[in-house]
Design a protein around this nucleic acid. Structure first.
Lengths: 223, 223
DNA sequence: TTATATGATAAAATCAATTTTACCTATTGA
DNA sequence: TCAATAGGTAAAATTGATTTTATCATATAA
């Protein structure tokens, strides 16, 4: 999602993206030991390349690298989810406000386009087709990125991206569907964007994030 | 400074800290090519270990890793400095407010202690002894960390730490002394902390950061 | 029995060697 | 003269091999 992009063709880069999404989408579980020999087979790269990848992920806090004891997938907790959500809120609210104030026609068009793609996916989800959750979540991410894309700070957007991804992991671990509520909120955010109503957008975004947190916690799969 | 700590004795970890501080303190200059063979000699580790380190630093945005063309020290720009400063402000103001509201006696004692160490250093700097800038800046960092340490979110503190370090690099690149003004502001921040006057502390912090930015830009060594 | 030490094993960290990729130069053809 | 391309070189990326470290089981002493 918000991963740092180098050469997409390179084997190391491919493996990095695969491992990263596997963590984000819960195919590699929190706390799981990441043994090098095993991963080497699973992802088809050598130990050195693997270690480069795991060091990057450790730097992103998606993996824990302790002492000389190798690597684990970062654990989850209620406390951490609340911190992640609060930080996402702080960053996204701020960026949203700036973006609404500065966005031009080009920005508006991108927002509309991003919402359209997301909306199509959300319709499909609504009618029971949960086959491509990854694409759905990528579109979700792209819509939120589009909203804040006129904030004027790539540093802010990258930082937000990293936090957003960790938030996403919690949503995926809770793995219970909340698409209908989210879809409505997305529509409301779009409407606010077109009216440049930052205050209302912030209010909806706050509810959007808090709703996600409480929904995730209610499933009881986190703590 | 805010680097991720693993085993401090390990050769790879030692080299990581050295390279990181060399970037932060301008001994490795912005845009500089980081050739593996050269670094191997300079830091006494093998190419694989070196690549792990550079991948971590690339993930922190202190190093640029593009395509299959190796590694460069991240470049600097006026725009980037402004973004970094704005993000530091957003995070630190928020954390400060929370911390002032929640801090207990233990927290106050830590703040006083951190300021005392910094203050001693600042006196030394004032009287012309600029021999240990690194320790000075580490104490600066520790004081600001102490102020926000009761904010209740380690995620927020770590994110802030990363941004703070990039801000620090700009200060070091400008390499012109501003210790007297900063020292006065630090004293004011301490007084605010003891009175729990978050509003005034935020105001001073804003000036503290903006002052640093304008001072750095005035030297003409950034753009 | 408990604590400490010793040795074996498995895994991680580091190193050295190979393969691949990019970059520069020179040469050829338009 | 310029563009395009092929060849050679230097550096990066990846691999496989070696060294180091941690962990677990067993034995020995308090």
């Amino acid at each position: 999602m918000g991963a740092i992009t180098k050469n997409a063709e390179a084997p190391g880069e491919r493996a990095y993206r695969r491992i990263r999404t596997d963590i984000l989408f819960g195919r590699l579980l929190p706390g799981q030991k990441l043994k090098l020999d095993r991963l080497k087979q699973d992802y088809g790269v050598s130990v050195s390349t693997l270690r480069e990848i795991l060091n990057r992920l450790a730097s992103e806090r998606l993996v824990l690298a302790e002492g000389q004891r190798g690597f684990d997938v970062t654990t989850v907790s209620v406390e951490d989810l609340r911190e992640i959500a609060a930080l996402r809120e702080l960053l996204e609210i701020h960026a949203l406000t700036e973006s609404f104030a500065a966005g031009d026609d080009e920005w508006e068009a991108n927002v509309v386009a991003a919402h359209h793609k997301l909306s199509l996916m959300e319709e499909r989800m609504k009618s029971g087709d949960h086959s491509d959750t990854e694409t759905w979540k990528r579109y979700d991410w792209l819509f939120h990125q589009a909203l804040i894309s006129a904030c004027g700070s790539s540093t802010l957007m990258e930082t937000h991206g990293g936090v957003f991804d960790k938030y996403l992991r919690y949503q995926m671990l809770a793995l219970s569907y909340r698409g209908d509520v989210a879809a409505r909120e997305h529509k409301q955010l779009l409407a606010c964007a077109l009216k440049r109503d930052a205050a209302k957008a912030c209010k909806i975004l706050r509810e959007h994030i808090h709703g996600g947190v409480e929904h995730a916690l209610a499933t009881g799969t986190i703590g």
